[in-house]
Amino acid sequence: MSTRLEKNERTTRSVVDQMGGPLGLTYSVVPVIVFVLANTFMSLTPTIALSITAGVGLFVVRLVRGERIASAVGSLVSVAVAIGIVMWTGSARDFFVVGIWASLAGFVLTAGSLLARRPVSGVIWNAVHGGRNNWRAHPGDLRAHDISTAFAALVFGARFVIQQWLYVQSNTGGLGIARLAMGTPLTILAALLVVWAFRRSTTSMRATTSPASDDRRPERTLP
């Protein structure tokens, strides 16, 4: 049992790592900075060329540093998709359109899970811990996952509302500032809340599966 718990704790600690780690989150803002600055002083064509160069350069740097290939490729693909949309529409503001609608999707998912009384952070925690834990029966655990998921929903919702308004106003510079201000800092805060909720549930699981506990076998429940 101790081996399983140690594995679960390692899984909990890797939440930020799965998003590329703190440095990976920092890398994610570089293409945005390059695009916004270039678009301020250049026409659209050189802005696109410089952004592509920055994206490829960042991809190479991440590979040289030995980061996960999936993280490096994911970053490059996201830049490529954004640039592709800009080339197709001819509008600089469309560099941000994927992120805007991704925020709406994230809000619908997280807010919907709260309404269904199955906060998504708790569902994920239960899935990576075997799917056999009656976590919703513990008010403290459920509340922790409610808080972490509600914060994520707030972040997603705020990103969509503010950036969609700036998009309608064709304010590319404002979109860049909003993307930076509401990107990495809020993502890290949300991740920390998720880690806190994960650890709380893991601690509860340890208590209910310890030799001193009468309830050694967690009840199977739906996520």
Rank of each mutant, 00 (worst) to 15 (best):
I69F: 14
I52L: 13
R65K: 15
S103L: 08
F41I: 09
A92T: 03
L76K: 03
V34T: 07
G74D: 11
N39P: 01
G99Y: 01
G55I: 04
P31D: 06
T40V: 08
G55N: 10
R68E: 15
S51Q: 11
T89V: 09
P31N: 09
A54N: 07
S71D: 15
V73A: 12
V29E: 11
G24R: 02
A105I: 04
L37Q: 03
R62H: 04
S91G: 01
Y27M: 08
S28A: 13
G74S: 11
F96I: 05
V81Y: 06
W101N: 04
V32R: 02
N39L: 06
G57S: 12
F59V: 08
G24S: 13
T89I: 08
I100D: 02
V86K: 07
S78Q: 06
A102Q: 09
V29Y: 14
I100E: 01
R65Y: 13
I52C: 09
V97L: 07
V30Y: 11
V60G: 14
R68N: 14
R68I: 12
F59H: 09
D94Q: 10
V36H: 08
V60R: 04
V34M: 05
L104A: 07
P31Q: 06
S28L: 11
D94K: 15
V29A: 13
A49C: 05
A80W: 03
V77L: 10
I85P: 01
S103T: 05
T26Q: 13
I33G: 02
A80P: 00
S103W: 04
S51R: 12
F96H: 02
L104T: 02
A92I: 02
W88D: 01
A80S: 11
F96G: 01
T47N: 07
V32I: 14
L44D: 00
G84F: 12
V56F: 14
A49G: 02
S75T: 13
V64H: 13
T89H: 04
E67G: 06
W101P: 00
F35E: 01
V81L: 12
A49R: 13
G66Y: 10
A92Q: 01
T89W: 01
Y27C: 06
L25M: 14
L58N: 10
L63H: 15
G55M: 06
A70S: 15
T47S: 11
A38G: 04
L37D: 03
G74P: 05
V61S: 15
V81P: 03
I48E: 00
L63E: 15
G24F: 14
V86Y: 01
A70K: 15
T45G: 01
L58Y: 11
V98M: 12
A72C: 08
V77T: 07
S78P: 00
F35R: 04
A38V: 11
A70Y: 14
F59A: 08
V97K: 06
A82M: 03
V34Q: 03
A105M: 05
V32Y: 05
L63M: 15
T26D: 13
P31S: 08
S43Q: 11
F35S: 04
I33Q: 02
P46N: 03
A92N: 00
F59P: 04
F41V: 10
V64N: 07
F35K: 05
V32F: 07
S91L: 12
V81D: 03
G90Y: 00
S71W: 10
A105E: 01
G90D: 00
A38C: 10
S75Y: 07
A54Q: 09
P31K: 05
I85G: 04
V29Q: 12
R93A: 00
L25E: 11
G55P: 03
P31A: 08
W101R: 09
S78I: 09
N39I: 05
